[in-house]
């Protein structure tokens, strides 16, 4: 038995990757939940918005790399992020003007907007593939690790190494900052409060002199920023491939719904719940168990509950369980 090594292995293979993934999901789910709360529909184009934002960031990163601009040891992508956000904001606000606004004026049923967002999804998906192609793109640079496994072993003398990738550390820190900023904005500023008011009661917001179009624009702006940051961090941490962003739609929706749709706090909780369960269920526990159990109990096989190919099944099952027992999600969401 060796609890210390078990703990290090657990941190290294489960806790850190799951926290990073959870932060990415939470940022994605926040975007979905904001649109659901304020524009009142589930945006099927969100995964592709993330892909678009990440793509622009990558293109600008490449340009910077060519020019030799760098902020090492941090990845250059961080410097390119504002450009990605600006381009994505322009895209989604342009889309709102050209597409969604018309349906708001017609007071269209929310489900009409869902179908509209499918069309937008197709267009954005095509756009991203058209510009950057369908292949894997790498754009991370700077230091690869905050702590490498070897350094950690030398430092502590433990058998098990702990490696923290820069991208994982960066993801978690960025997510904390972004979430804190978002909550401050929603709860403390006049514009943020007007967004909550609009989400709560559109008619009364109108009677209070809140301009709906302005609320919608600000929402899209925030969503563009959240989507770009989430997309870029995911790309840095794993890799950028347009199709994987489309596939992220399920865990992101699941996160938002599990947490309680329309509730930002819920989106974050949901993101982490989904991420931790995905990693926990698909991780091969052999190493951790070998360290933490008496020798005679050590597992023979990999001790993996499900193959990683079924990670989406996990988010789905969690979702169903939560909805069966708590139809409004973990935190009180809007209806359901």
């Amino acid at each position: 038995m060796d609890f210390l090594n078990a703990l290090v292995a657990l941190t290294n293979f489960v806790i850190i990757p799951a926290t990073a993934y959870g932060s990415q999901l939470a940022l994605g789910a926040l975007g979905v939940t904001l649109i659901y709360g304020i524009l009142r529909f589930s945006n099927f184009a969100h995964g592709d918005t993330m892909a678009f934002g990440a793509m622009v960031t990558i293109l600008v990163t490449w340009a910077f790399q060519k020019m030799g601009v760098s902020i090492a040891p941090l990845p250059t992508a961080l410097l390119a992020l504002p450009f990605g956000i600006a381009a994505t904001a322009a895209l989604v606000i342009g889309t709102d003007r050209a597409v969604y606004r018309f349906y708001r004026e017609k007071k269209a049923a929310p489900v009409t907007l869902v179908i509209v967002s499918m069309g937008v999804m197709f267009v954005m998906n095509g756009l991203v593939r058209f510009i950057i192609g369908v292949d894997d793109q790498r754009f991370g640079d700077g230091a690869r690790f905050i702590i490498s496994a070897r350094d950690f072993k030398e430092m502590t003398g433990l058998r098990e190494g702990l490696a923290i990738k820069t991208s994982a550390g960066l993801t978690i820190i960025t997510a904390v900052i972004v979430v804190a900023a978002l909550f401050w904005f929603l709860n403390k500023t006049r514009t943020g409060k007007s967004m909550r008011a609009y989400s709560d009661n559109e008619d009364l917001a109108l009677l209070s002199g809140i301009n709906p179009e302005r609320v919608v624009m600000v929402t899209w702006l925030i969503v563009a920023a959240l989507a770009t940051i989430a997309g870029t961090l995911y790309g840095l941490d794993k890799s950028f491939k347009p199709f994987t962003y489309f596939q992220l739609l399920l865990p992101i929706f699941a996160s938002a719904i599990v947490g309680g749709l329309g509730n930002p706090l819920g989106a974050i909780a949901g993101g982490f719940l989904i991420a931790y369960s995905e990693v926990a269920v698909t991780y091969a526990w052999k190493k951790v168990l070998t360290y933490s159990l008496p020798e005679s109990f050590a597992p023979e096989g990999l001790a993996q509950l499900l193959s990683t190919d079924y990670k989406h099944a996990v988010s789905f099952v969690i979702l169903i369980i939560v909805l069966l027992f708590k139809p409004t999600g973990l935190f009180k969401g809007k209806s359901v």
Binding site: Y36, A109, P110, S199, L206, L261, K334
Partner: peptide, 16 residues
Amino acid sequence: DRGNKDATITNPSGRG
């Protein structure tokens, strides 16, 4: 909306 009341995609509360 063809009678759709799917809460995972549409949010009926607070609509104007």
